[in-house]
């Protein structure tokens, strides 16, 4: 038995239990169990009381009954608002993710091509804006996009347009907001992937007569799929449930499910209804989240094997 084995053995015996148990139980109580409660409350009825929902279980005359009511889900199906809210959220998130990929990939590629010394500086410059407030960066776009905002003033001053363009309070403003806020999350995983590529592959392709464009599509792009998937999921999943961006930049007709959940909870004070909205949103996101986790796990394994 070598030292490392002895070390892990002792670790296993004494520290391991606590090391695993503490974070595990914290996440169990404050991350996993809350979802079960959301599921439970989505089957209850809204009422005007504290708390504003009914109990599912009752104990009357020695009979223990559990009543699940599906009205919250039937409501979701029957009101067009919710159905179209889900569809348009997915559409908006998908379009914004595609735009983010089209802008983020070239940036990640250009950074990976830089000499190693400047690479870290460029990467830091990409991340730095996300360390300032998200809310304030979205707010910045209101002044730029609104009717008498900077873009309209500039374009009208130059005589390009006569009427101000309507950008704020349209889906275009929401796209701009999502791309702006989430761009670093696209660039980072793609860069991490690209920078690991073995440049001798490209040299070999060039020796064999491939043109740079050809070897990009045949070698670099296929090798960077895992970075693309990770980045796209990091943008797509939170975008579907985004609240701040559609609230501040979108208009009344920019339906997004995060906004609907918010108003169901804070304005209508319908907690069971909001819970049902959340459960359906989560069901919608289970597939993307699983894909993200699978790639994340694969990536972690690769890292572990390298060392």
């Amino acid at each position: 038995m070598n030292i490392a084995q002895v070390f892990t053995q002792t670790l296993k015996q004494s520290g391991k239990k606590l090391v695993v148990l503490l974070p595990f139980s914290w996440l169990l109580v404050f991350f996993l169990i809350p979802f079960l409660i959301v599921l439970q409350i989505s089957f209850s009825e809204s009422r005007i009381a504290q708390p504003p929902f009914t109990d599912l279980t009752s104990f009357v005359d020695d009979v223990y009954t559990i009543s699940l009511n599906l009205f919250n889900y039937i409501d979701l199906y029957e009101y067009d608002l919710y159905l179209s809210g889900y569809i348009s959220s997915v559409k908006i998130a998908f379009t914004a993710t595609t735009l983010c990929l089209l802008i983020g990939y070239p940036i990640a590629y250009a950074i990976a091509k830089l000499p190693p010394h400047t690479r870290n500086l460029a990467l830091m410059l990409v991340i730095l804006p996300s360390w300032t407030s998200f809310l304030i960066r979205i707010y910045a776009w209101i002044g730029i996009l609104k009717q008498n905002g900077l873009i309209n003033n500039a374009l009208m001053g130059l005589g390009v347009i006569e009427q101000p363009l309507e950008i704020l309070h349209t889906p275009i403003a929401v796209y701009i907001g999502i791309v702006y806020a989430y761009l670093p999350f696209m660039v980072l995983p793609i860069y991490t992937n690209l920078v690991k590529h073995d440049s001798s592959l490209l040299e070999a392709a060039a020796d064999l007569g491939a043109r740079p464009i050809g070897s990009f599509f045949k070698i670099t792009l296929p090798l960077s799929v895992s970075g693309i998937v990770a980045g796209s999921m990091l943008v797509f999943i939170p975008s579907v449930g985004e609240f701040v961006i559609p609230e501040l930049l979108g208009g009344p007709d920019t339906l997004m499910i995060g906004k609907l959940l918010w108003s169901e909870f804070f304005n209508a004070r319908n907690w069971p209804g909001a819970s049902a909205v959340a459960v359906v949103m989560l069901l919608l996101l289970i597939l993307p989240i699983t894909i993200f986790q699978r790639y994340q796990a694969k990536d972690l394994e690769e890292q572990a094997n390298e060392h």
Partner: peptide, 21 residues
């Protein structure tokens, strides 16, 4: 799974579920 999920979970879901907890 519980460690990576919070990274992408939409905030409205996390917020609502914690409140109900």
């Amino acid at each position: 799974g519980m460690i990576t999920a919070p990274l992408v979970m939409p905030e409205v879901i996390t917020g609502l579920s914690l409140l109900l907890l």
